[in-house]
Write a protein that binds this DNA or RNA. Structure first.
Lengths: 336, 336
DNA sequence: GAGGTCTGTGAATACGTATTCACAAGGCGG
DNA sequence: CCGCCTTGTGAATACGTATTCACAGACCTC
C-alpha cells in the first residue's frame, strides 16, 4: 500500500524541468513553452500525476470546496436538491462536503464551525436556519453563505426560496374559488420561515376572499402529527371540506389519514392541496394537486449567488424568490 | 471581509508561547504544562481560533475526509444511507465529500480520480460499481474503498450488502408457500450485482420448490419500464398471480400499474413482494410486504470496515452480507 | 551594435500545521 | 556534588503546490 503519492517534483524530475514549471503547466494561466508543456504532460501522464488539491488549496487560499448543510434528507425534495447541488458544484470544479443536521441549533453551531475549519470557500444551508452569532462567525472567516429554502426573518443573509407567501396566498384563493368554505391548514413547522411564510400567505389569501380559515395546525413536518391533526379536525363539530398541507409529505400523510383512517374520498369529500411537487405527487396513488417548487431553478440560483459571493462579484439581489406554479392534478375538486 | 484567518502563530503570540506549543495543545497527544495549556486555550478562545484542517491534513497525511460516491439518490433507501453515513462519519471526526454519479463508468472514472486528488482517506461507493482499473488507481494511491450495496463480481473488493441471493431465494419460497404458481420477477438492473443476485436467488428458490418462474423482466430500476413490464406480463396468455419486485420503488410502480392501469386488487388478484423496506412501504397506500435491508447495520458495518482499512487494522471479512428479514404487511396474500 | 522589451525558466518562499531534534531546567540516586 | 533521567519548550523543517523575483537569452528598434 504505497502512500507514495506522485508529486510535482517527481514529474519535474522525469520531464527534466523544475517543480514550478510543472505547477505552471497545470495552472493554465502562466505562459509555458509548448514543447516544455508537452514533455511535462507526457511525464505526468506516464506517472499518473494529479495535483494535490489540499496543497493547492493551502497555497492559493481557495479550497474549491463548499459546505452543504442539510436537514430533512428524508424529504425527497431535499434529496433531489442535494443531488442537484453536488452535480452543479462538480460542473464548476467544486466539491460538496455534506453535513446532515438536525434542527437543533446547538449541534449546528459546532458543525458549522467544524466545517469552517475545513476552509470551505462557501456554505449552503438547506432547510436549516442559523442564528446571528453563527452568521457572524462565517462572515468573519470570510466565508460567504446562502440559505436555501429556509430564510431567516430579521436578517439580510443571502437567501433563495420559492415565493412561499405568494404560494400560500394562491393556495387559499384556489380552494375558495373552487367553492370550499371550511378550509384548514395543516402547516409546516412554525419554527421555520418556510412554514411561517406559507401559513401567513394562506391567512392573507383567505382574508382576501373574506373567508375565515377553519384552523391551522402545526405538523412540524411530522407524519404522525399530521395524521393526528386530521383526526382532530374531523373530530370537531365543523369539519373541513379542504385541507392545504405545508408540503407534499404532509399532504401524503393527510391523504392517508383521510382515506384509510376516516374512509373519506378525495376530492369528493375533501380537497387536498400540497406544496413542493416531489416526484411522488404524480404517482396515481396520490395524484396530488400542488405548487411546484422548481428545484432546478432554485439550485441554479443558489449556486450562482454563492459563486458571485465567492468571487467577489456584486450580487444583484440578496433575496431570490422563485414563483411556484400550480400543478393541477386530481386532489382538488373542479369548480362547482 | 477579512480573509484574515487566525492562525496558531497568532494564538502563540497572544499566549506568549511558540507556534509548536499551540499545535501541541491542540494535538492532545503531546505533554504540555497545564498552566501553559490554560493560557493557550484562553488565548485561542478569545481569538476564536480553530486549527486549519487543510494544513493539518497536509502535515499529517490524513485529511479525515472520506469520499462518498452515490448513485440513485432518488431512492429513499440511498438518501437515508447518505444521511446515516454523514452522521456516522461526523461522529468519528470525519467528513464526507459527496459525489453523485450516474451509472456511466466513463464519468465515474474522472470523478473518482478527482476525489482522490483531494486526498480523501477512504472511499465509499454506494450503489455504484467500479472497474478494476479504477480500483487499482485507488489502491495505488493507498486509499481504501468499500462498496456499499453494490458488490462487484469477480473482484475481492471489500463489500457490504444485504444477503441478496438469500433474500431472493426466500422471496421465491414465500410466494410459492403462499400458494402462488405463476410468479414473475420484475427485476432490478441486471448490470448491477444487487439486481443479479436477487434474481439468481429468486430463480434458485423457485428451483428449490420445483416451480418454473413465469418471467423475469429487467426494470433497470426505472418506474416507467416497470410499469410497461406489468402491462406486458398481463398482455400474455398466462398472467402472473404474484410479482417479486427488484426493490421497493419497483414494487410501488408495479402496485400502481396493477391497481390503476389494470384495475386489479392486491393481494386478492396478485401478490406483490418488495425489497428494501423504505419508510414508504409502511404507508397504508402501499402496505408492502418486503424484505428489510437494515440500513443502519449496513452503514455501521461499512464505516467499521473502512475505518479498519484506513487505520491499517486487519479486516475480519472482506465481504459482509447482512441478512434481510421479511416484513410482512398486506401485499402478499395469506396461506391458502 | 547598444539599449530595450519580451519570453521562459529556476531559486526562493509562502500557505498553516505537525513533528523531530536540541536544549534548558529541575529532580533524583549515589 | 556529579551524572542521569524527565519534563517542557523553541528552532528548524516537512507536507506539495503557487507565486514572486531574478535572470538568461532571443528578438526588436533606431
Amino acid at each position: 500500500m504505497g502512500r507514495s503519492r506522485i508529486t510535482a517534483r517527481d514529474v519535474a524530475a522525469a520531464a527534466g524541468v523544475s517543480q514550478p514549471t510543472v505547477s505552471r503547466v497545470f495552472a493554465d494561466n502562466a505562459r509555458v513553452d509548448p514543447a516544455t508543456r508537452d514533455r511535462v504532460m507526457r511525464a505526468a501522464g506516464d506517472l499518473g500525476y494529479r495535483p494535490n488539491r489540499l496543497a493547492r488549496a493551502m497555497s492559493r487560499g481557495r479550497s474549491h470546496t463548499v459546505g452543504l448543510i442539510v436537514a430533512g434528507l428524508d424529504n425527497p425534495f431535499y434529496a433531489d436538491a442535494v443531488d442537484r447541488f453536488s452535480r452543479a458544484l462538480q460542473a464548476r470544479g467544486y466539491h460538496a462536503v455534506i453535513v446532515t443536521a438536525s434542527n437543533d441549533a446547538a449541534d449546528l453551531d459546532g458543525q458549522v464551525r467544524d466545517i469552517l475549519a475545513m476552509q470551505v470557500d462557501g456554505l449552503i444551508l438547506a432547510s436549516v436556519s442559523i442564528d446571528n452569532a453563527l452568521a457572524r462567525a462565517a462572515s468573519q472567516a470570510g466565508v460567504p453563505l446562502v440559505l436555501f429554502n429556509r430564510g431567516q426573518h430579521g436578517t439580510d443573509l443571502p437567501t433563495v426560496t420559492s415565493a412561499n407567501h405568494d404560494g400560500g396566498r394562491r393556495a387559499a384563493h384556489l380552494l375558495v374559488d373552487r367553492g370550499h368554505r371550511r378550509i384548514a391548514h395543516v402547516s409546516g413547522w412554525q419554527g421555520s420561515a418556510t412554514g411561517v411564510d406559507r401559513q401567513r400567505g394562506f391567512l392573507d389569501g383567505m382574508a382576501d376572499r373574506g373567508v375565515a380559515p377553519l384552523a391551522c395546525i402545526d405538523s412540524r413536518y411530522d407524519r404522525d402529527r399530521a395524521r393526528r391533526a386530521v383526526h382532530d379536525l374531523f373530530g370537531a363539530d365543523v369539519t373541513p371540506d379542504a385541507i392545504f398541507a405545508g408540503n407534499d409529505l404532509i399532504a401524503f400523510a393527510v391523504l392517508s389519514a383521510l382515506r384509510h383512517d376516516l374512509g373519506l374520498s378525495v376530492p369528493r369529500d375533501v380537497s387536498v392541496l400540497g406544496y413542493d411537487d416531489v416526484a411522488m405527487a404524480a404517482w396515481p396513488e396520490f395524484d396530488l394537486t400542488t405548487f411546484r417548487q422548481p428545484a432546478g431553478r432554485m439550485v441554479d440560483a443558489t449556486i450562482g449567488m454563492l459563486m458571485d459571493l465567492i468571487d467577489g462579484r456584486p450580487v444583484p439581489d440578496r433575496l431570490t424568490e422563485i414563483r411556484s406554479d400550480l400543478i393541477e392534478r386530481g386532489s382538488v375538486r373542479a369548480a362547482p
